[in-house]
Design a binder for these strands. Sequence first.
DNA 1: AAGTAATGTTAAAGATTGTTAAATAGTAGT
DNA 2: ACTACTATTTAACAATCTTTAACATTACTT
Lengths: 227, 227
Amino acid sequence: MEETRILLAEDDENLGSLLKEYLEIKGYKTGLFTNGNRAYKGFIQEHFDLCLLDVMMPEKDGFTLAKEIRQINTDIPIIFLTAKTLKQDVLEGFSIGADDYITKPFSMEELLFRIEAILRRTHGTEGSQQEVFQLGKYSFDAQKQTLTIDGQTQKLTTKEAELLKLLGNNKNKVLERNFALRTIWFDDNYFNARSMDVYITKLRKYLKQDPLVEIINVHGKGFKIIC
Amino acid sequence: MEETRILLAEDDENLGSLLKEYLEIKGYKTGLFTNGNRAYKGFIQEHFDLCLLDVMMPEKDGFTLAKEIRQINTDIPIIFLTAKTLKQDVLEGFSIGADDYITKPFSMEELLFRIEAILRRTHGTEGSQQEVFQLGKYSFDAQKQTLTIDGQTQKLTTKEAELLKLLGNNKNKVLERNFALRTIWFDDNYFNARSMDVYITKLRKYLKQDPLVEIINVHGKGFKIIC
DNA sequence: AAGTAATGTTAAAGATTGTTAAATAGTAGT
DNA sequence: ACTACTATTTAACAATCTTTAACATTACTT
């Protein structure tokens, strides 16, 4: 397996070097650039496999930089780091071709999770990758968005499936509220949080047929599925 | 494999040189001309395999240039770049013999997708090459626009085939609405979106005979075919 | 125990998608 | 040109998905 190289564009030097240090410990060679222009030059001169771009930077903002990078390489995964989420911004980001979006403050684990998820998606045999979870007597197919028990199959909506997938990824471990909100809703405001609660209720209904499977709340933290 | 040479006529020098830079990184030798007259001279003097023509250019617009190019070479693929889509313009473009049409702003990924699609179509020994998809028990021939199951063959209309081809190209992955609309309808407005929905319904009907093949909606994103 | 915050639940409102049929546009033959 | 036919778009309404609102319940804090 080759070394994965990450381009990091972040004007806050403290945060930047912290991230760089962390990523390198995790085995990613990281190039840190403290403004958009330098990052662009770096991108042209060196080889990178993934870009982490701060949106708000002096001189050249992350979106502009991303557009320029996209002109050179359409495939390289781009993750935006941003202080605050405006739906508008998220949409603009994705229209440029962002692969993910992460709002500050974020934990290092969260960032790593997203980086690895994207690298799996990009490198891996993608598409055909089977995403079937066993949840007690239930079988959940994230691709097809279906939940099956005793031959009975229930179709799930997109959001239901996305949430159950995150829960299933963390069986018997806490899925943090903010993490789920940022991953699925791209923003962790109050209303999205309530929307997520509604979906938790829906999933619980679907999962009633096996009493050994349960989604429990961890007050103030999030939810975990036990099975 | 020989080198493919692209003629690029674009009066906006910033965009032009970015495109050139990008295309060359992708392995296409690119000649950039910043107005129609220069582009015409360039076309006569050098050899090119594909033309990217901006429609709106001072002195000589893209359509006029295309007509002149067509008099010299009836076969060379031509893609128009245009700021805004007027149905009128698209029709005029195709009547001149355009091979494709792309509206700004477009992503580089999108442009590359179209260039490569056309080169496959034009160059390749093609025939039945990569244009036959296996979708569960179905066999779909994008060239012939036919869908076959158990020896029964159903003819598809052009739009039906184009849409199924895009879906088939992204098996088990989400085909984004906007991308499909821009690729097939050249514009992603509300009405085209509804038209696309109608075609999704039609395709679902055709695909009913194999229950393992399904086109599912990913709310707010697009569709994916699973099989 | 009382008060506050977080979660549970249900229903309505709002947005997107599914479907059918009619209107329009395009095509080929005469 | 006209007619007959097919393909595509538009319109209308139905169904589904998501968010928002409201109120109920539970958990935590003091």
